[in-house]
């Protein structure tokens, strides 16, 4: 038996919004420690890794590990029908063929039950290697969204160059070019508005704009985002979710020909 209850539907809505455009279907791997999901796009350029820790749930029970193959669009559509403050309980029998969803209003005067058919999803969990990153940039997630969106009007690649002085996002396209530099915040009243740049080695890497734009749509998950860059390893973009876990996106760089 698997059962997981979140006190507020809002967090699940945000999580599904952030991954469902990149992930059509995936396996929710449920174990005693929580729920995880990994999904790569068909060209193996990007990967989404989601972790929802058991302690982030109001109630959590998973007697034996199970994989729930889910169409993320279908799940997203159903979860969207819940009120933001509704409690949501996900459940599945050990050898069941559906994922059950129960929404309970805060007044407990409305209870909705849905079932989503499970599917066979051919995807195995990868052991994501621990990477050595040369640079870690923490910045407001809304700023990252703005920068990727603004540069996407010009070019299909964004070069991210980072030194101790700042991080530069630049692009070139048929119509021209553009670049935006963010400096490390000198004094910050609000942690979440800070730009913090940690540099072991300066680095410049180029990435496909369209994926960065997709990732940056997760801004609702956290006011801050971290970009981790290293030579020979994928970019890792992380949106932490307090005690709940994280959504991480991995993106292979563009390589010089």
């Amino acid at each position: 038996m698997f059962e997981a209850r979140v006190a507020q539907a809002e967090i699940l809505k945000k999580i599904l919004d952030s991954v469902r455009e990149l992930v059509e279907q995936g396996n929710l791997d449920c174990s005693g420690t929580g729920i995880s999901l990994q999904a790569m796009d068909s060209s193996h350029v990007s990967l989404v890794a989601l972790l929802l820790k058991s302690e982030g749930f109001e109630r959590y029970r998973c007697d034996r590990s199970i994989n729930l193959g889910i169409n993320m669009q279908s799940l997203g559509k159903i979860v969207k029908t819940a009120g933001n403050h509704d409690a949501i309980t996900l459940s599945s029998e050990d050898k069941g063929d559906v994922l059950g969803l129960m929404f309970e209003s805060t007044e407990q005067d409305k209870v909705s039950n849905y079932e989503i058919k499970l599917m066979d999803v051919d995807a195995e969990q990868l052991a994501i290697p621990v990477a050595e990153y040369s640079v870690c940039v923490r910045m407001p997630s809304a700023e990252f969204a703005r920068i990727t969106r603004d540069l996407s009007t010009i070019g299909d690649s964004v070069l991210i160059s980072c030194t101790k002085d700042g991080v530069q996002f630049s692009t070139t396209g048929d119509t021209g070019s553009g670049s935006i530099v963010l400096r490390q915040s000198s004094s910050v009243d609000d942690e979440k508005k800070a730009v913090v740049i940690e540099v072991q080695e300066p680095i410049s890497l180029s990435f496909a704009t369209k994926f960065l734009v997709q990732f940056s749509k997760s801004a609702a998950l956290n006011e801050s985002v971290t970009l981790n860059l290293g030579d020979g390893v994928p970019l890792m973009v992380e949106y932490p979710m307090k005690e709940m876990g994280y959504v991480r996106f991995y993106l292979a760089p563009k390589l010089s020909n």
């Binding site: 060209s43 290697p129 990477a131 180029s206 496909a208 292979a252 760089p253 563009k254």
Partner: peptide, 14 residues
């Protein structure tokens, strides 16, 4: 000129 890399080598996928 650049070409898009992939994640295969990072994850040891052949």
């Amino acid at each position: 000129k650049t070409k898009q890399g992939n994640l295969n080598s990072f994850f040891g996928i052949k």
